[in-house]
Nucleic acid binder design. Sequence first.
DNA 1: CTAGGGTTAG
Length: 814
Amino acid sequence: MTSLILPTASLSTTPQSPVSSSSSRIQHTLTQRIHIPPHIYKHPAAILLELCTSLQELHQIIPLIIKNGLYQEHLFQTKLVSLFCKYNSLTEATRVFEPIEDKNDALYHTMLKGYAQNSSISDGFSFFCRMVEEGVRPVVYNFTYLLKGCGENNYVKEGKEVHAQVILNGHEGDVYVMTCVVNMYAKCRLVEDAYKVFVRLPERDLVCWNTIIAGYAQNGFAGRAIELVAQMLSEGLRPDPVTVISILPAVGNVGDLRVGKAIHGSVFKSGYERHGNVATALVDMYLKCGCLSTGRVIFDKMRSKNVVSWNIMIDGYAQNGDYAEALSLFDKMLDNGFKPTGVTVMAALHACADSGELTRGQFVHSLVNELGLKHDVSVMNSLISMYCKCKRVDIAAEIFNNMKEKTLVSWNAMILGYAQNGQIINALNHFRLMKVKNIDPDSFTMVSIIAAVTELSVLRQAKWVHGVVTRTCLDTNVFVKTALVDMYAKCGAITTARKLFDLMNDRHVTTWNAMIDGYGTHGYGTEAIKLFKEMEARDIKPNNITFLCIISACSHSGFVEEGRQYFYKMKHEFKIEPTMDHYGTMVDLLGRSGRLTEAWDFIQDMPVEPGINVFGAMLGACKIHKNVELAEMAAGRLFELNPNDGGYYVLLANIYVTASMWDKVTEIRSKMDERGIRKTPGYSSVELENEVHTFYSGSSWHSDSNKIYNFLEILIDKIKDAGYAPATDLMQDVEDDLQEQMVSTHSEKLAIAFGLLNTRPGTTIHIRKNLRVCGDCHNATKYISLVENREIIVRDLHRFHHFKNGICSCGDYW
DNA sequence: CTAGGGTTAG
């Protein structure tokens, strides 16, 4: 970095010594003034250079220059340096530049421009220093290149240095270079410093006003930018298209439709709406303000749409969830012969991902290769996300592994993909791999990792990830903290979750949702309602998820009236349209409490076609309350919608079992055999010493199998003495004692026995089950918690059961 | 060589 420091002493004296003392310099100055004869500047080679458009063409022209003996001419040398710089070939430019013996000022200035625009900032600075040392006096526009480079690369220290040099060289009053200084500070996010320079300018023209306005707009100070536009108007300056294009994105970002419309009006009056980029900026503003149709009208009217206009429109639809329209517009863009850019492809992939359109996603993927966007990391990251969202983590992983240049975003996309597709081990392994490769995680990484651990629901891992978050200082991020609250709640540590929640001073709606849902799934309905009321008291606006959580919490606690009120409140007070999940939860609320006909009527009154989850909730309620008639009706509709889910067949069969309708049971079982539908095998897992042990019903593969079965036998005798009666009414043609033996080896019981055997007395046992806990196991676990004096927390498919002193937090209501 | 400001984004 020291090479970037400018030679202040020699420079500051430059204004006082207009001509360098070196004698060769005097000669150079003289040659510069030599008149260039027309046979040189009108030579066909000179004209060809003027028309040159690419590096290849330039290479073809050079032999012509040499053949005609023009290579030594200053005009050609300068032009060659300039063109090589323009086509990004700095090595060739220096190859022309260095051997020249009598370099004139123009040559130095050209070379400097090349370094400043195409190379690293330090190269630009080094060359500047060299130029000064070799006696060339810097001219004012030399500083503009350097300032631009500082701004683009966030080089604050160097930028300030150039600012000082500009003043030392007496250019303080030059509005051109001072505008560059203003721009440099604004680009370095020091917009207040930019403003200080701006206000001290002796004269302020439209361009420098535009610069400071854009500066505030780009740094997130939309209001201030709008204010400055007003001030500019009051000083008698009329905005031009650049002013409009600078201010509109800021207006869009804050969603100030009123100001946006006012600008639209003035644009219309001045006739700027014919300016393609102004129209594009207007479309963008309307889309960001959520006015899709207005944006579309302007877009459709545009005569000269460019790629950016298409990109904005496509992305606007994708962002607003209208994936079909986004993709149809993408097709239209291709039909109109536009070449998609990386941004287009990312918007299209976003639409494919969120609508699960794998086939179209793969089509876009093929375009990526055709368009030569394979080396655009952002595009590749979008491909990874698309494949993950479309559940093809395998393809995503292949892309990820083949990427030469991975960014943090690539890692985040891959880890999130693994976490969301249940590949927890892969997610954690990639997190470890990141560390090996010395890539520091950010808040996005941590949210994904926390989600993965939440899926595991192992308290030990939860504490580990919490530790990582603290050590990496990412525990200040709201999203990370919210994920932690959710994680602790889902790991059964509801008290820890609440402690973290209370420690937060910057909660997001999702934070409240996580906590309310945590209470709900643990059966703490009263706490959930209390929290909702606190939200209201603090004027925090609930969203549709909040209502889903609170109604579900009411359902789990049997608060039917309260649940109904929240549903009403959501629709009428908060004007939130219920989703299918809300309807499902309402059916669950009514059905669970025994109001079966009411639940059925609720389904009939739904304004939309009921989905699978709605009939699923109905069927579940029929199982609890033993209603065969309604169960058959719900199941009929359910099998029409989803004929291949084994779980619902088993549920109906069990309803028949309870009603002793054995012929119906046989009928269902043979139907399942016919259609090749199988029940998901149930399993329970328990964590021990950093290892997760999984048990299936009646399984004996565990190395401690004998010990577990012996212990379980003693345990069941013990709870029988306490009053436990095993369920023996589950099958028709099986003897009671055999049935008892079958239920006694359910996976939950094996996992609990294993947990008790391997933990110290008094330790809480955490069990995870992939299905809903069965009635007999629920009953047995209550007794076990009593006789063993242990707290047992079972997380099943839908909720948590906290067993303590012979009772369960669900109040036998699940 | 002969200067300064603007639009889309995971």
